[in-house]
């Protein structure tokens, strides 16, 4: 049901885009206005979310560690997994962001039939890590490749990415490796949510929707590149027009292009209010981005109240006469 809900939403979006593509008067909206709005919502929303997160207090060090903390000199510290220096933190964050270190440590838990009834067993589970790695890196390379539409002349780096991506030179236009990888990876990530009962149980429409969106975006992109060809030069003129704030609307771009750009716009606009914000969030994970120096530095909670203290001396000053009358012992006469 949750799957169907997301699926129908994406189908509706595709239908909306198809209608937009078939009515020439709407091309200005779908090709220029919506992409601009989406871009503003993406950058603005992203900054808003990160600033909002940044305002939440993180008074103490709460790193999660899988290594020996810095301790006595003869005990070997794990400088990266339990960093006590900024450099260690940077290396740990880089491993997290670029190689998904935490996900690599993913385990699965199973009840197995043992000799004396069921036994709990743990095993490594690397498929999710591998699928995510392929998915995210493909996505990044695809985005960098798309810069060839937005930059004139096309920088060498973008061309280099492209030629490496199309290194197999199969067919014409040549197949991009990332196109294949992202489709396989996103299908794997989707099937995982359907097939594994525990993951299925916790999956929400907000989990399926981005998957369907990315599938459709990759799908329309691939269709547009290999099957229902569009006029690329016209596409680039439109893109450069957007980037130079002199929007032009070339005629005769294929309808597939409008579906593609509409879905991309919706994904970008939706980005800041969705789970996709893990792109910014990963940098702000307090358990990852702090050095574990609680035993070396005293961290004082910056918003601690000044507690009004009523010490015994004050108490005695206040009640000394009464205490004397009642015959209670006092420290000061």
């Amino acid at each position: 049901m949750k799957v169907l809900y997301s699926f129908i939403t994406v189908i509706v979006l595709i239908i909306v885009a198809s209608i937009g593509a078939s009515i020439a008067n709407l091309h200005y909206v779908f090709g220029i206005i919506i992409p601009y709005l989406a871009f503003i919502m993406f950058v603005g929303g992203f900054i808003y979310r990160v600033v909002k997160w940044g305002r939440s207090p993180v008074p103490f060090r709460i790193p999660t560690t899988i290594g020996q903390q810095k301790s006595l000199p003869w005990i070997k510290q794990n400088k990266i997994e339990n960093p006590s220096s900024a450099f260690g933190v940077i290396v740990r964050m880089a491993m997290e962001v670029l190689l998904f270190r935490s996900l690599f440590r993913n385990t699965k838990t199973e009840l197995r039939e043992g000799q004396n009834g069921p036994e709990l067993s743990y095993g490594s589970a690397k498929w999710l890590w591998l699928g995510s790695l392929f998915f995210h890196w493909s996505f990044l390379i695809i985005i960098v490749r798309h810069l060839r539409f937005f930059m004139d002349p096309v920088p060498f780096l973008v061309q280099a990415f492209e030629s490496v991506d199309g290194i197999l030179q199969i067919g014409l236009p040549a197949i991009y490796l990332t196109d294949v990888f992202i489709l396989i990876a996103v299908t794997f990530l989707f099937c995982r949510r359907l097939v594994v009962p525990q993951v299925r149980y916790i999956s929400l429409p907000a989990d399926f929707f981005p998957l369907f969106m990315i599938m459709s975006i990759a799908g329309t992109g691939i269709l547009m590149r290999y099957f229902f060809k569009v006029d690329l030069v016209a596409v680039k003129e439109l893109a450069i027009g957007l980037a130079t704030f002199q929007p032009v609307l070339p005629t005769d771009i294929g309808p597939m292009f409008f579906i593609h750009i509409f879905l991309v716009s919706i994904l970008f606009a939706y980005f800041p209010m969705s789970k996709l914000m893990h792109m910014g969030g990963i940098f702000m994970s307090p358990t990852r981005n702090m050095m574990n120096n609680s035993r070396m530095v005293r961290h004082i909670n910056p918003w601690n109240y000044d507690v009004e203290v009523h010490t015994y001396e004050h108490y005695e000053d206040e009640f000394r006469d009464k205490m004397k009358k009642a015959g209670l012992p006092v420290e000061k006469e």
Binding site: D152, E237, V248
Partner: peptide, 9 residues
């Protein structure tokens, strides 16, 4: 990157 350039095609 494209600032000040004309979209010539």
């Amino acid at each position: 990157y494209n600032m000040g350039k004309v979209n010539a095609g």
